[in-house]
Design a protein around this nucleic acid. Sequence first.
RNA 1: GCCGGGGUGGCGGAACUGGUAGACGCGCCGGACUCAAAAUCCGGUUCUGGUAACAGAGUGGGGGUUCGAUUCCCCCCCCCGGCACCA
Length: 865
Amino acid sequence: MSETYNPGQIEPAIQKAWADQAAHRADDGSEDGRERFYCLSMFPYPSGKLHMGHMRNYTICDVISRYQMMCGRRVLQPMGWDAFGLPAENAAMANGVPPAKWTRDNIAHMRGQLKALGFAIDWERELATCDPEYYRWNQWFFLRLLKRGIAYKKTGVVNWDPVDQSVLANEQVVDGRGWRSGALVEKREIPMYYLRITDYADELLESLDELDGWPERVRTMQANWIGRSAGAEISFACRDQTIKVFTTRPDTLMGATYMAIAAEHPLARLAADNNPELRDFLIECQKGGVSEADIATQEKLGMDTGFKAIHPLTGEELPVWVANYVLMGYGEGAIMAVPGHDERDFEFALKYHLPIPQVVSLPEGRAYDDRQWHEDYKAKDGTLINSGAYNGLNCADGAEAVVADLEARDAGRKRIQYRLRDWGISRQRYWGCPIPIIHCEHCGEVPVPEQDLPVMLPEDLVPDGAGNPLGRHEAFVNTVCPTCGGPARRETDTMDTFVDSSWYFLRFTCPDNDQAMVDAETNRWMPVDQYIGGIEHAILHLLYARFWTKLMRDEGLITFDEPFARLLTQGMVLAETYYRKDDAGRTTWFNPADVDVERNEKGQVTRAVLASDGTEVTPGGIEKMAKSKNNGVDPKALVDHYGADTVRLFSMFAAPPEQSLEWSEAGVEGAWRFLRRLWTGVQDHIAGGLPGQVDPGGLDDESRELRRLLHETIVKVGDDFGRRYTFNTAIAAMMEFCNHLNRFGAATDGRRALCQEAWEGIVRLIAPVTPHIAEKLWQDLGHSDSVFEAGWPQVDKTALVRQAVTIVVQVNGKVRGRIEAAPGSGREDIESAALADENVVRFVAGKTIRKVIVVPDKLVNVVAN
RNA sequence: GCCGGGGUGGCGGAACUGGUAGACGCGCCGGACUCAAAAUCCGGUUCUGGUAACAGAGUGGGGGUUCGAUUCCCCCCCCCGGCACCA
């Protein structure tokens, strides 16, 4: 009798053996010619507990890492902590614990959870962004950027909570109010440091084409985010000033009927000086948050300033309006409005009764109606009308002509404009990397000298929600000016946490170097061969990391242009939700682990009840695992119950990695059953003693068939692990093969030798997914080395040869039969065999055969009517 | 509002380059084992009609291209991610 599968015993023992042998150390100092492979997951924010999204992310990463190890590569799989950020401050406010302690406790806890999952992580390279040894290099590099002029200071608009006297994150603005104070949020301009990412817009856009290991959708999103548009800059005189605008449609300049400027535009403020109504309107415009989604969905409001701008070609006077849909942060903070051919301008002009002339002809059959917008109005394929000298030109030629005339009058020129804006990195928050600047009354803003870095963040403060506690920390704030030696104050803003995450992947290559930010090892490991993380990072994090890489290249610190060769964006982890409403209308959410479902004889769910008392609860649909819906499933509890291998197997089997994954306890049971069958299969096999080598030439038909399936499975799984990253279909293929193998009678020595080859094959194939059980079974199958050193199984091409193929026979596209044929049979042979098929004869009876389509080795379609 | 993605049995999903729709797993139904239950093993399981053989329908909805469409094109509906201070 074989011992039963007991992951609770096997997994800790195997993990200990790996740790004792330092099996996952990426660099043992030897140079053995192995190719390097850097496999990286987006590092976690240490929120407290590992959740299923983490578990899925790191399992994908581990499967790829271990597969690459088995293919003979030297693999680096590191782990670190994105440790600065807002949640630590919120937790601090709630519990009175300093963010530093809360964060470090969380890291310790989550590290333990990660280790229990058996990932092949090189823990010697672990880092946390809140460590001064890490963030000192943020500061060091920021100062270099400042010297180069890439970092600079200007004002920016933020959400301001007038009660808490605090800057709020967009997330902290709920329905236009501060989430703690409930006060109406206002926009406020404050000075901040920016990085000139717009200087790199062209390169960031153009090198997207080279990122052929990235999903198309991510490249498209980044390209649209950068948003390069060719157009013209046009100056309109207004009083003694000029209003500069950018337009992509200079051809429609003759259709401009008004100017629209942002509420923060200097001219708007000027106009408000002796216009109380306008002043009130500008105050009104300050209400609400700064997020683009809010601004784009709010009602379009405007007010005439009374100022007139001069049309640069006609000399006509255009009214200047303040409009809340024009933003100071975009372009010039002003636009020329062409309501006939721009939807937002049209809507605004209609509302405020401004003229809406047509200046571009429309397609045949489309009549122009200045009361009803139509998509055709914005098309660029008509010719110019009502445009004086430009009448009759097509839009492209019209644009050229208009710009040429503007240039002649020094009132405009061609320009490329980006949607991308410079990256504001100042945060008015405590738990982040201090910006290394000293404010001196005499010397102004003075960079902290390099030898004084890092500027250490005091770790014992507890924020209270009212501003930044650093500002009240006298020991931190008060310092001396490095230039004049006089009393001075430190900058209390900290850096955006996206700065921390823009280069951590470089630091993993040399985490202990206290002399330099990166070194020669960085160029040897980089770029990351495979990066894995959530699709929600498709734009911001990935764009900033690409930008930062180019900045470091231009500082001469690294030699490559792009950080991530191949990118996999994993889907979210979802689970069913269950709730109950009480008489007061309050909703209580119940965890799926506490709910039983009842089904009818077709398997459809009829009722859900609470396991504890049998009372009914309502299914609320499938949603992202979240605290608010109480539908999170704790990976720890599952690992304790089933073992890490089962949880890993299910999460890789239930869905392809890019799609969302619906958690299912029953599905986990299925994975558990499969591993137990695998275990029992191997144990039953070895109970008969270990057989000798298989003789491929001496196999009976059934054995040859099984061996063909084995080698087809090896090909399929290698392709799925190495190229397609469809782990679900790889696992399905392994399950399918195991089903065959378990049914295969091992009556003879020859067959037992084949079974040995088959079990060894399947154990090696599944090792990347379920490393513990694979390691144990590999030993049981008679090996003293690690299954990961044994390597990926070799394909025997002769085993793949088929004796016959099945060809599908269709009549008019419907399957009517199947014929067997030798592989590579000729068209005529297949056609005559198909036409002789009795079902084909029956379905073409009384009809004329029009044509016969033959796809060799696959399909025949007889077309008849 | 703008940008991007998705929709296939009761459920998760498969079908990779336009060529057998539903692999694999879950659930459900039936059987074996058992005093019984659990576990395990065996068989069945898209829907409709039919005892069955078989026939018809079918990949969110509508239209198109093609011998052939889940796959390509057009229109529409619904769901999800991002929108620059959540990470």
